[in-house]
Nucleic acid binder design. Structure first.
Lengths: 117, 117
DNA sequence: TTGTTATATTCGAATATTCGCATATTGTTG
DNA sequence: CAACAATATGCGAATATTCGAATATAACAA
């Protein structure tokens, strides 16, 4: 009872527990409804990979997919998700210093931009 | 940059992405600071298991551990986490119907209570 | 029909989580 | 000190996630 409710919540958090999926949510929050093609172009994801992540989000009903002719348009299911991410940002700022040290730990990958080596 | 920030957020969501850890957070939110012994008694978790989950929460700085003599007292690091969980409840209610169908899907385990079949 | 574009799904390997069990650590009491 | 209580950690097996590669499906155009 109480228990499966927690499982429900955990499932949603799990769906949010990936950088690419967070990027997707943030993009949808900022841009509204967009086609998959634009989505994976913007986020520099492989098409298949983006589709897999979208499937995860769909399975938790976090996003809505709508077919429009050739393409599929995605949008956020509920503003609450945007709010949650805003809270995360707030949290991030509140604990900026140690957040930075956490980021330090993460700074093993993510070179991403490199100015002509 | 933007990317490792998302990784940071994802890490926090991942820490929340387990029913037992959600239960821990909710318990700390409701009870304030409590010793581990009380925590795993209340949640009916194995001692080692509870400790492992607490380690996950600690690693993301979501909880604070304070030693007091023999025992270790845990508390929530930031009210924001409670707020996030409240939002989740709000979300749950907003989409109650389909949430219920999601719960149906989960109802593979969690028999828990059964009225003599 | 055939071809083309857009998106989804399947598969398998690499990696990560989760749990119970055993053991280690820390503090207290006698 | 030894014995005990409270908590943490290490290990290994079971399970779950993640990714790229290949393939499937859907809508449309010629």
């Amino acid at each position: 009872m109480q228990n499966s409710l927690r499982q429900f919540k955990a499932g949603i958090f799990r769906a949010l527990a990936h950088p690419s999926r967070i990027a997707i949510i943030e993009l949808l929050r900022d841009e509204g409804e967009i086609p998959v093609s634009k989505l994976y172009a913007r986020l520099e994801l492989e098409q298949a990979n983006a589709s897999q992540h979208l499937a995860v989000l769909r399975s938790k009903h976090l996003v809505i997919a709508r077919r429009s002719g050739n393409q599929v348009l995605y949008s956020l299911r509920d503003r609450i998700l945007g709010t949650v991410l805003d809270l995360m940002r707030e949290y991030f700022h509140a604990h900026l210093e140690e957040s930075l040290s956490l980021l330090e730990d993460l700074r093993t990958d993510v070179p991403k931009k490199r100015k002509t080596p």
